[in-house]
């Protein structure tokens, strides 16, 4: 099943203020992969993600999703295929109730109301948030907001799920819940994060971004074992790996 691929070919992006965020990014992901995107602050992770569903268009180069070039003409298809969960759930949850928020995407797809209701219930059930259905979005806790934010995207039945800093602000239990949830999903997952233990736990493959370029693209364990590479890119091995390698004190 190669039709759910995501491909970037020599993508450059410069912000209107002249800041060059991406400088020749190229990679190719295939169906069912779980890919982590890591890098220091300002490396270009979020900019890269915004290209995947056409929120930003490359200054030069090409982005292909599901064998379609990402362009104004294919935006509707691309946004049905790529679901994006933003870093701050308050940006994602803009409707007054959880139900309305989860229904927002399916309604925009023009689905009939019965289908919308079924999708809302199914998405909330998948993330274990059906109990919050009638609650006001602003009254959820940080972890609850995060799971509902994922439901808002799942209700559109995307093939590819893009998550920007999914563990930011989560307590350990909510983080563990999120990891378990993501492991149950069969989507292609693209996750940009600073939480390297999370990447080690969830992702099979990892891209390292540095100053807008792909510095490395390899299996996650291989990336994290390459201390020199991590050091060059303002990163460190995940804490769980550091503990394994540190001498026992007691």
């Amino acid at each position: 099943m190669s039709h759910h691929l995501v491909e970037m070919q020599d993508v450059h992006y410069t912000y209107p203020d002249g800041a060059k965020a991406l400088r020749g990014v190229s990679f190719r992901l295939t169906h069912g992969e779980t890919v982590g995107i890591i890098g220091g602050n300002g490396a270009g992770k979020s900019t890269l993600l915004l290209h995947l569903n056409g929120c930003l268009m490359p200054t030069s180069g090409a982005v292909r999703v599901d064998n379609f070039p990402v362009s104004t003409a294919t935006l509707t298809h691309v946004r049905k295929t790529v679901g994006m969960v933003f870093q701050n759930p308050d940006d994602q949850l803009f409707m007054p109730t959880v139900e309305e928020d989860v229904a927002f995407g399916p309604r925009n797809m023009g689905l009939p109301s019965d289908e919308v209701n079924a999708r809302v219930d199914a998405a909330l059930e998948t993330v274990g948030a059906l109990a919050f259905k009638h609650r006001a979005s602003h009254r959820l806790s940080g972890g609850e907001k995060r799971t509902v934010a994922i439901a808002t995207v799942l209700s559109m039945s995307p093939d590819i799920l893009v998550l920007d800093e999914p563990t930011a602000g989560l307590d350990p239990r909510a983080r563990r819940h999120l990891i378990e949830l993501l492991k149950t999903l069969e989507h292609t997952l693209i996750i940009a994060t600073h939480d390297l233990d999370f990447v080690l736990d969830v992702c099979d493959r990892t891209l390292v971004i540095h100053e807008g370029c792909i510095a490395a693209d390899d299996a996650t364990e291989a990336i994290f074992k390459n201390v020199e590479l991590l050091d060059q890119n303002n990163l460190e091995p995940p804490l769980s790996m550091q503990r394994k390698n540190s001498p026992t004190i007691f």
Binding site: M84, D91, F94, R107, M109
Partner: peptide, 22 residues
């Protein structure tokens, strides 16, 4: 800044300038 982020989030969920309400 937040308004821009919210708009981006809306766009990525198929917003085309009209919100359907139940």
């Amino acid at each position: 800044g937040r308004a821009r982020c919210i708009h981006t989030a809306m766009l990525s969920r198929g917003f085309t300038g009209r919100i359907s309400q139940s």
